[in-house]
């Protein structure tokens, strides 16, 4: 792959998905796009990029984005964010929303579904306190492939053993051949939708809690700031944002302040966030 093709791919991924690919990740492009070449009968990356430049093959564009997206996830990943949900956020919003008895949660980078299903299981465990409540869990991801897997709720033996306590496996899953499927009761608690975080998402409405973990690390600074600003606008005034362990808002946006007592938890700064800072460039030069 020549320099011009690599630069085109970097720009394409940045503009279309927000993914900031540093020059040293050239090997990643070559390894992840090799299967896409085969799927689309392209002889090599040069031919694949030529087809991309034509701008007429939406399926190819989506496949390239999906191939370059990292979908690493597992049930109760990092544990802390789920203890936070159970011990801090749920009690807080059960009190704060007692008048409306309606809670809206958004998992903004849901991947194959383990994060929203982990939250749904915690809600089920707390069901005695949620009688008469309506709890929505919206789970979005840029990749339709991973969302299709998420909707099925079907996981292999390795996936159900990374982070999922055995008691919860027994309680909420059934064995389907050599795989495990999460119960329809839990699946029905989660609404999966495709969403590109660098595009508008005002139509999703207002949320009380947003989990946006381990996705902003793949964006550059201005894109992070822009996405965080719009997440702030999608949050209730007393809403909470949970980021990944390697992520922060410091130096990126003033829309949130870290919660000193709980790592990874951020509170919305009261006023609506101005989005007049320049958004990422939205054109692919072909």
């Amino acid at each position: 792959m020549n320099e011009a093709d690599f630069d085109f791919l970097r720009n394409f991924l940045k503009v279309r998905s927000g993914l900031a690919l540093p020059p040293e990740k050239r090997y990643l492009v070559e390894s992840r796009l090799a299967p896409v070449c085969r799927s689309f009968a392209a002889a090599d990356l040069t031919e694949l990029v030529r087809n991309l430049r034509s701008g007429r093959n939406l399926a190819l564009e989506n496949s390239v984005i999906e191939a370059m997206t990292t979908n690493e996830t597992f049930f109760f990943r990092d544990k802390g964010p789920f203890d936070l949900f159970k011990d801090v956020l749920l009690p807080r919003y059960l009190a704060a929303r007692s008048a409306t008895r309606h809670l809206r949660i958004w998992c903004a980078a849901a991947s194959t579904g383990q994060e929203p299903y982990s939250l749904a299981m915690l809600l089920e465990e707390a069901s005695s306190r949620l009688s008469g409540w309506k709890v929505d869990i919206l789970a979005t991801d840029i990749s339709t492939d991973v969302l299709n897997k998420a909707k099925l709720g079907l996981y292999n033996q390795f996936e159900v053993q990374r982070g999922l306590p055995i008691q919860l496996l027994l309680k909420y899953f059934t064995q389907v051949g050599d795989q495990w499927q999460i119960s329809s009761a839990i699946r029905s608690k989660v609404n999966f939708q495709p969403l590109n975080l660098i595009k508008e998402f005002g139509h999703l409405g207002t949320f009380d809690i947003v989990y946006c973990r381990n996705v902003l690390i793949y964006f550059d600074g201005p894109t992070k700031g822009h996405v965080l600003g719009r997440i702030a606008n999608a949050l209730a005034p007393d809403g909470a944002l949970v980021l990944g362990a390697a992520e922060t808002v410091l130096g990126i946006t003033d829309a949130f302040t870290p919660d000193a007592a709980h790592r990874g938890l951020y509170s919305k700064v009261s006023q609506t966030v101005s989005l007049d800072r320049t958004p990422p460039k939205l054109a692919v030069s072909r």
């Binding site: 597992f74 033996q157 390795f158 053993q161 990374r162 982070g163 306590p165 055995i166």
Partner: peptide, 15 residues
């Protein structure tokens, strides 16, 4: 807890 073979380091650590 219960580990279903085969396992790897991630699974062992998680359990």
């Amino acid at each position: 807890e219960y580990i279903m073979k085969p396992f790897d380091k991630d699974i062992m650590t998680a359990k």
